[in-house]
Amino acid sequence: MSSDKETIRTRIWDEVPEPDNPFAAASCYCAGFDVYGDLLGKISWVEYLYLLFKLEPPSAGQAGLLEGLAVAIANPGPRDHSVRAAMNAGVGGSSHAACLAATLAVGAGQAGGAHEVALAMDVWRACGRDLNTWTGHLSRTPEAEQADVWPPAEHPPGFDPRGVSCATPVRRSLEYLSVRSDGDNLPWLQQHRGELERAAGLPLAMTGVTAAALVDLGFDAPQGEMLCLLLRLPGAAAHALEQQGYGYKKYPFFKDGLDLINDPGPVPRGDGRASR
């Protein structure tokens, strides 16, 4: 290769070409490990996921925690906004990529989505495990430093603005993950959930548990946001395929759901009758 060619700079991936084709890889190395000559058959999927992001193998505890988190957030169920987006695409016969792109677009948001998790991870970085700092933080309305494409936050990230009490799946996930974490944040969250919920005036949400787990795993907020987007796809994909099979006639349309406040009504026809 001539030295003036532009290159892809990376710490993640290296390749050795096949002898007969410079555009085909004979060997691929992820963070120094031979993917098809060594990792395949030895590494689990979540270990590989961790390796890709952190460039070092996870401990057994970290792999177990990421595995648990991946199960906890793999499928928020068919009522979830992001899964509904995938199913909407599915029932209309959209491409499968459109189903997942719809999930990503909706599941990216600040109300139950990946950006909320990233914002919650920022709060963990800012407040640590200091209850007074958390209480002060939760009593203020969060404000963005600059105008942004993201809408202003409407609730403290990690808490459920539509919740009444902490939902059972959230409590069970927190219980399960907190005893498996090598870090300190999940156990602290398990211990102080009640105080934090009182300060926020809202119950803890799955986004809050997810954020604590990702901080305990050593991910930064952009890595956490990416992982949340990625890990929510399995459920959305399965639900989209299922609804595609059932078809739009068996999927809610909210036939009588719109309450139009400014309907001008049918336009009168030339003969004086309405155009109905």
Binding site: M1, K5, R11, D14, P17, G32, F33, K42
Partner: peptide, 26 residues
């Protein structure tokens, strides 16, 4: 298109994986 050697690798040198997980059973 990119040929393989257009990847400018800056990461860890070659190493072997040691895993405690039993995923290599055939």
């Amino acid at each position: 298109p990119f040929r393989c050697d257009r990847i400018d690798y800056k990461g860890c040198s070659r190493r072997k994986w040691k895993s405690s997980l039993k995923t290599d059973e055939v």
